[in-house]
């Protein structure tokens, strides 16, 4: 079991909570693709993974700069709020490959606007876990690789722009999700599945995600599985929990894990997601 699985569960639970609060939740599914292991090369993989997208994806797809006057929509500015979370696991039942979930307004519904932006990338692959986060994170520096989309230089968060031209071509969060998936899968053969969540509904919806992101960043920094191993169904960390602002998140995760243990141990066993 991967220490990050609890955070994946947490993300799914958060989406459900937002759905229950009557937030607009849309789910897109990328077209099926052959197993990445059969793909002959990264560029071919990229071409297949981006087939049908309204914009180009890959090195040189964009000059990497969108001026203010050419901007259709700005996402995740410091004023609007931003959060970025990357999770990796080798647990098969987690991560629904190709699924892109959007909570909040779509690109086309937000002309000239500025939206809060939460981006969660959930990756699956054999042996993937917290030890890989740093390297995988580098794949997400997508500067100049998505036509009509610019990620600004804001370490730790995603502050980005969608160009008017791209919006006119039909650039949507489904597009962005597929583009990110393509770049990650073609950049790392170890990644077998990618699921993406975008949250544009409101700054408040980013708060629990950011709390989880902070914990995951700590885990990524530690880098050693031993330090962050799961003990039974407890998430343990090297911090003084009583003094930690993220204690509620950990408590939530513990309860999710306990609940899952209960389900797993019940007759009929493993629960489906």
């Amino acid at each position: 079991m991967n220490v990050l699985d609890a955070y994946l569960e947490r993300v799914y639970a958060l989406v459900e909570e937002m759905r229950e609060r009557a937030a607009l939740v849309r789910v897109y599914q990328a077209p099926g693709i052959p197993g990445t292991g059969d793909l002959p090369g990264a560029s071919d993989a990229l071409a297949r993974l981006t087939e049908g997208l309204p914009i180009r994806v890959g090195p040189g797809a964009s000059p990497g700069l969108i001026l203010r006057s050419d901007t259709f929509l700005e996402l995740g500015s410091p004023e609007a709020g931003s959060c970025s979370l990357l999770l990796a696991t080798d647990t098969t039942r987690l991560v629904h490959d190709g699924r892109v979930t959007l909570v909040g307004p779509e690109v086309g519904e937000s002309a000239g606007g500025s939206l809060p932006f939460g981006q969660v990338l959930m990756l699956r692959g054999a042996g993937l876990g917290e030890k890989d986060l740093d390297e995988l994170q580098r794949l997400l520096v997508v500067a100049g690789q998505i036509e009509g989309y610019m990620v600004r230089s804001a370490p730790g968060n995603v502050w980005s722009r969608v160009s008017q031209e791209a919006a006119a071509k039909g650039f949507s969060f489904a597009t962005l999700g597929r583009a990110l998936r393509a770049l990650v899968m073609s950049g790392s053969p170890a990644v077998e599945a990618v699921e993406v969540l975008f949250v544009t509904s409101g700054k408040a919806d980013l708060v629990p995600l950011e709390a989880a992101a902070q914990q995951v960043r700590k885990i990524a920094r530690e880098g050693t599985r031993e330090r962050w191993k799961v003990k039974g169904y407890d998430i343990d960390c090297a911090n003084d929990c009583s003094a930690c602002g993220d204690k509620p998140v950990c408590d939530d995760i513990r309860s999710v894990l306990k609940e899952r243990q209960h389900i797993d141990e019940s007759p009929g066993g493993t629960h489906a997601t």
Partner: peptide, 14 residues
Amino acid sequence: RRQLEKLKSAVEEH
């Protein structure tokens, strides 16, 4: 004190 608490926890765990 909080930093020492963290160190203590880390030593205990490892």
